[in-house]
Design a binder for these strands. Sequence first.
DNA 1: AAATTGATGTTGTTTTTCCAACAAAAAAGG
DNA 2: CCTTTTTTGTTGGAAAAACAACATCAATTT
Lengths: 219, 219
Amino acid sequence: MDVLMTCKLFQEMTMEEINSILNCFSAKEKEFKKGEFICNQGDVMAELCVVLEGSVHIIKSDYWGNQTIMTEVRPGEIFGESYACAEMESQVAAMALEKTRILKLNLLHMMTVCTSACPCHNRMIKNLIMVMARKNVNLTEKIEHMSKRTTRNKLLSYLSAQAKKTGKSSFTIPFNRQQLADYLSVERSAMSAELSKLKDEGILDYDKNYFILTGISAK
Amino acid sequence: MDVLMTCKLFQEMTMEEINSILNCFSAKEKEFKKGEFICNQGDVMAELCVVLEGSVHIIKSDYWGNQTIMTEVRPGEIFGESYACAEMESQVAAMALEKTRILKLNLLHMMTVCTSACPCHNRMIKNLIMVMARKNVNLTEKIEHMSKRTTRNKLLSYLSAQAKKTGKSSFTIPFNRQQLADYLSVERSAMSAELSKLKDEGILDYDKNYFILTGISAK
DNA sequence: AAATTGATGTTGTTTTTCCAACAAAAAAGG
DNA sequence: CCTTTTTTGTTGGAAAAACAACATCAATTT
């Protein structure tokens, strides 16, 4: 599968190595119809899921049954690894948005078996650790932005982080307005208004996804 | 060290096993004075740090130099593992709050060396994966609560999650009011007011840290 | 070229939060 | 037991966000 080559879990592996890994983790492919549930809230998940084709919504329902879509998972991306590795019941459900093919890798014997038979077992574990660590850093960063009280400060937190990352005061962001608003959990229109204000005040400038941080922010 | 026995990284290990692990990861103990920086934003971290004694603040400074304290790390807890495992520059600094002793474990050769010499290498990796996975689940949960637009909905999101977790409609939370407000990133007083309102409306009842979810929430 | 669609910006109203100050209750300390 | 400190609840005014509705602009389709 070409998709697997793009998956972070299998980075720096050849086709043959990936195949031996799939074997070693008793990988099983499953197909789901549109609307079908791949796993439910409360399931005990010993498996990591790779999306091969289609797309999946990760859904959380609360005590009263209200549902929230948390993320969308697309081909080459994975889900369920946190619950599998933490040996916890899944706190979320996963639903196929369309006809979707999933590859399930059983992590139960991840650490115990396979010292020599499969050459890339270690590489796979390292990749998994890296994927989780990256996700961790990203989640922490998102929380950092979201924890700011006002839309203005959320924006400045996010934009200044981008500036710091790129090392430049001008940069392009990977979101459009609606996506940025969703990421920061604010109203799109209010955010747009706040961006205008920041531009007026000379703190920043922008055109579409291209931003320039200029002025000095008091706090 | 007694502290190490309480550290999640070394769970299910004996003293001797921990010692061999420390050797294998070329652990080095370092002492820091109050106010001293253990690592700086931008440092390349190949090391995971365990706090043996004292306490550490994880600090983030933005583009303009404004600083935020993100977490406090106490004895037996670890930090820096995400950046070490993700092979990224640290996005945060760590400062000793008082006289603090730190144990640094080098993760660089985590996957490559030590197949037989050290019996618990695998267990250590498994523990590390579990720690990161748990952290991941917790961060995701926190984001879920924080993403709600109003203080009321943040509260309901958090409380309903606790109810779901315990499987009961009554439960005790591990936060006092100020801590809960910090966790949800809202004003304590406004949150208190909102709790009163929810009680008046018959949606829940509480006494100190003890909560009961009763009524039906519209959304 | 006209019509449609999607993304973005603007504005006024309503709702909610923030903030500050204070009150009340509970816990801790002497 | 009394004092001090901490925690929690309450209130009113100022600030900000949410919301809804609409305007503008660009890209796409017909």
